[in-house]
């Protein structure tokens, strides 16, 4: 137990350090971008005066060195105040809330659907490599992987919204819309995201499963008379899931950082678009909060993956040494 507590603490410390470094890196990178919001304002406001420039720079805190601004942000963030968004003129939490929920809905749904389809296909394809099913599955996976999301999105809109008129072409449902209406709006963006994800996870699952099925313990289990499906689903699958869980953990952060292209094509304002606008608009407070949230969730995903490794292969949890 002591060992576990130490590991958790060490992991926590590492995560805090990563977040701290990330916050400075993000702040610095935004600051290094050419042109700040006031420079852009000058271009659109013909009558702006040097006094206006100085006043606006001071109001937005752009007249201070970047490290000082970062330090001020850090101290107030540690005190629970994430600041106000420069672009939206509102507290960062309230600006993030809506897009975060929308990204979670979209990406979680697409991930669940993709896994539900990709894992069985990957397993079945691995049972008979280069067989008919494997060839078809590979073909579909590659098609999914190689289709650009912006193109697929437009094609789905043209078919299901323009030609058949079955689904809305984009946008979010109005407030008070029921579950059915929300699902109708989600259908095309979720499908777009899921197609590429299915291809990716099918390939991972297939490769990991083929490797697992070639292990000695699988052959031993089969020789001992264990049923084929039992061997596949109980013995081989657990080991094959380890690389899949690793990739899944890395994708976890995407839940909170959104999918910019799909969100733009379907006019579904999620975290991807919000982060893009915040970075391009030099909205430090908003960009930092959104990007650090995505970083924190990625770190959490990796921590959960470590726990999952232990469950999938107890030797990893025990830290067993190679003979």
């Amino acid at each position: 137990m002591g060992g576990l507590a130490a590991r958790v603490l060490r992991r926590l410390g590492q995560s805090v350090l990563v977040l701290l470094v990330m916050s400075f890196v993000i702040y610095g990178l935004i600051g290094l971008m050419p042109g700040d919001p006031i420079d852009l304002m000058i271009a659109t406001l013909p009558n702006i005066t040097p006094d206006d420039i100085a006043r606006l720079r001071s109001l937005h805190g752009l007249d201070e060195p970047i490290w000082l601004r970062w330090w001020q942000w850090l101290t107030s963030a540690l005190g629970g105040d994430l600041g106000n968004s420069r672009l939206y003129g509102a507290p960062v939490e309230s600006v993030i809330a809506g897009p975060l929920l929308r990204s979670l809905m979209l990406i979680a749904a697409s991930l669940v659907i993709a896994l539900a389809i990709a894992l069985p296909i990957g397993i079945l394809a691995a049972l008979r490599p280069r067989g008919v099913f494997d060839t078809v599955a590979n073909l579909i996976a590659f098609v999914g992987l190689s289709m650009p999301t912006f193109w697929l999105g437009i094609m789905l809109i043209m078919v299901f919204a323009v030609t058949f008129g079955w689904l809305p072409a984009g946008g979010v449902p109005q407030s008070g819309a029921g579950v059915a209406e929300t699902l109708r709006h989600m259908a095309l963006p979720v499908a777009t995201l899921a197609v590429a994800t299915i291809g990716q996870y099918t390939r991972y699952m297939r490769a990991a499963m083929i490797e697992s099925l070639n292990q000695d313990y699988v052959r031993t289990a089969l020789a001992k008379g264990a049923g084929r499906w039992r061997v596949v689903l109980v013995h081989a699958l657990r080991n094959a899931m380890i690389p899949v869980v690793t990739v899944l953990a890395l994708d976890f952060g995407m839940l909170f950082s959104g999918a910019l292209i799909t969100e733009t094509v379907f006019a579904w304002p999620g975290m991807g678009k919000l982060i893009f606008d915040a970075v391009m608009g030099n909205d430090y407070a908003l960009a930092l909060a959104a990007l650090l949230l995505a970083t924190a969730v990625t770190l959490l995903g990796n921590a959960l993956a470590d726990v999952a490794y232990g469950w999938l292969d107890p030797r990893i949890g025990r830290g067993s040494k190679a003979p």
Partner: peptide
């Protein structure tokens, strides 16, 4: 709808 191709599609679809 920032993407102009998607905006066109929205118009054709009645969105």
């Amino acid at each position: 709808v920032e993407n102009t191709a998607a905006l066109e599609a929205n118009l054709l679809a009645g969105g």
